[in-house]
Amino acid sequence: MSSEQSLPDERQPLSDVLVIDLSRLVSGNVLTHVLADLGAAVVKIESPERGDDLRAWQRQGVSTYWLEYSRNKDSVALDLRSDEGMASLRSLIARADILVENFRPGTLEKMGLGYDALQRLNPKLIVVRISGWGQTGPFAKKGGFGSLIEAMSGFAAMNGHADRPPVLPPFSLADSVAGLHGSTAALAALLRQRANPSPTVQEIDLSLFEPLFSMLGPQASEFQLTGQATQRSGSRSPTHAPRNVYATKDGRWVALSAGMAGTLQRLFAGIGHPDALKDERFATHEARLANIDALDDLIQGHLSTLTLAEALAFFEDRDITAGEVCDIEDLLTHPYIQERELLLDTPTPDGRTVSVHAVPFKINGARPPVRRPAPALGQDNDKWLKDQ
């Protein structure tokens, strides 16, 4: 574990918040992962037979995603098809501040936990309802895995290279973005709820589609203004140039983003073309975008003569915004990761040790701690069900 200073438990921002998590897989787990890292007591309700489906995402027998997204949480195994299991769930909900679910719309109602039932049970409750497409609309009953959202939202159409097929992200992007938005919405609702002398159940309708769609920027307005959709351009940017990845002579890669005039002047001078900003091909923002191949050729020609270390020193000396392209093997020993203590050792159920990410921020100089590793299935039944 990290030796870095951690916030004590009593100073965790959400130490008095109870969250009941009925979700499965990524979106809900990311949402409650944020809340748990901030100190909330998060109770994962899992099927006694197999638990959260996230447990099945394994490498060499280790549920790696479960270790990442379910640390600082408790696990309660309940059979929600039984009267006893539902009675236990209702008892937990009656005590909770936040309830998170990602069933298809209408499932909570079929379980007898619609709005009116929850209002009778716990009027101060905040319910975050995650679905692919939202609780209403023509797609409400349609399945909504992240890959469908990443395709339909416009992300895949603008990702990749123009001469190749659209590219889906290599991780659960839509679910993760929705989870982050959901945690913010839940905390905003909680803040308002606690100031309300006569609270009523607050429902947050969180689709996977809408947060990702909003993160793609001004796609609609730019299309309306230009009549053109954003084209796939690899690592280049449709808004400024140069912005790309470039190979060094030792087979490594650097990323460069240098759209500001001062940075460009230092870059051009450094690569042996001090008058490039007077060249009509590169003199203006629009000209650089129109002549991006020629611009990239100039930069690549210089970087091809440098090793990665030499390229990084070249950019550092000239205060140019560039850096190395890393994979996880690089990052495991990277001085930035080590100095910031961003990876923590955590035990696996079979006695091995692997690294997981630390809480990704500090509060007044202290990082919220990982209080416990991800729980075994049903590990906390006695703790939460002992009085039932």
Rank of each mutant, 00 (worst) to 15 (best):
G106I: 02
N122A: 09
M260H: 14
T200L: 13
Y246C: 01
V354R: 05
I45Q: 08
F268W: 11
F171E: 08
I337F: 14
R372N: 01
D317N: 13
P347V: 01
Y246N: 01
P218V: 03
G132P: 04
G134Y: 11
D293M: 05
G323M: 07
E109A: 14
A366H: 10
E101Q: 14
Q228T: 11
S172N: 12
R59C: 06
A77P: 12
L212A: 11
G28E: 05
P165G: 10
G112Y: 05
G51N: 03
H273R: 14
L92R: 04
S15P: 03
A255N: 08
V128P: 06
A283V: 10
R288P: 02
L298G: 00
E329F: 13
G262Q: 10
R120Q: 15
G114A: 10
Q202W: 02
L308F: 00
D350M: 00
D52Q: 02
V19E: 08
I271C: 06
G301D: 00
A96W: 04
V370G: 08
G234R: 00
P369I: 09
L121G: 02
G262C: 07
A56N: 13
R372G: 04
A290W: 00
R59W: 06
R372E: 07
W133P: 01
D83A: 15
L38H: 10
M86Y: 05
P13Y: 07
D52C: 03
P169T: 14
K110D: 11
T230Y: 13
R367D: 10
V254F: 10
R55A: 05
V26G: 07
V359A: 12
G301Q: 03
L264M: 12
K362G: 00
P242R: 11
P373D: 03
N381V: 07
F145P: 15
P170F: 12
D380T: 00
T348L: 05
I126W: 08
F103S: 06
A185P: 08
A140W: 09
F209Q: 07
G134C: 05
